[in-house]
């Protein structure tokens, strides 16, 4: 894909989350311009690629693993990425996404798709990917190399981590940069 073979292949993925972590990524502002010189963004909501590509160097994964589709994608990510980063609280802890874990799936779907204000009806359920019994933090589904907590992780954290990785250094976050929430 990329003409410059030296560029790092970066992917981002959006599982069960609100996309806030991706928004925070966009908040990198001018750093994005610097970044884009060093990396190719090869997959994710920010670019238009249908399939998760091979040979990804770094993948930032937002969101908890909450349905079968998430799980399949998580596995593809693991198989094809060198470094997988749990990106934001939903991926790291399950966070808000996992607040449904106490509720039986059946009750949950009934409440959302049948009793909610705009009923969608049973038919549409057939196209929804099946929910897992519990929304899982990413590392309980696949092996994770680095944790970047925060809801969302602020741009400073993202910059610190990504810069270190691009420079081939070990990522060291100061305590105040690794708080949940």
């Amino acid at each position: 894909m990329s003409q410059n073979s030296k560029k790092v292949r970066l992917a981002t993925a959006w599982l069960g989350g609100c996309s806030g972590c991706h928004m925070s990524f966009l908040d990198l502002d001018e750093l994005l311009i610097e970044l884009i010189e060093k990396v190719d963004i090869v997959y994710g909501p920010l670019v238009d690629h249908k399939e998760f590509p091979e040979d990804v160097d770094i993948c930032l994964v937002e969101g908890a693993v909450t349905n079968v589709e998430n799980l399949e994608l998580a596995r593809q990510i693991r198989t094809n990425s060198k470094i997988v980063i749990s990106f934001g609280d939903c991926a790291v802890t399950g966070n808000v996404t996992s607040m449904r874990n106490r509720i039986p799936i059946k009750d949950l779907l009934t409440a959302v798709y049948h009793e909610a204000q705009a009923p969608i009806g049973a038919e549409s359920l057939k196209v929804l990917p099946a929910l897992l019994k519990k929304a899982l933090p990413l590392h309980q589904a696949i092996k994770v190399d680095l944790y970047l907590p925060g809801c969302p992780p602020d741009p400073e954290r993202i910059a610190t981590a990504v810069t270190a990785l691009l420079e081939g250094r070990e990522v060291e976050l100061a305590p105040q940069m690794r708080t949940f929430g």
């Binding site: 059946k106 779907l109 359920l125 057939k126 990917p129 099946a130 929910l131």
Partner: peptide
């Protein structure tokens, strides 16, 4: 076939 929601139901 087990991957869609209606199976869960």
């Amino acid at each position: 076939a087990e991957r869609a929601v209606f199976k869960e139901e």
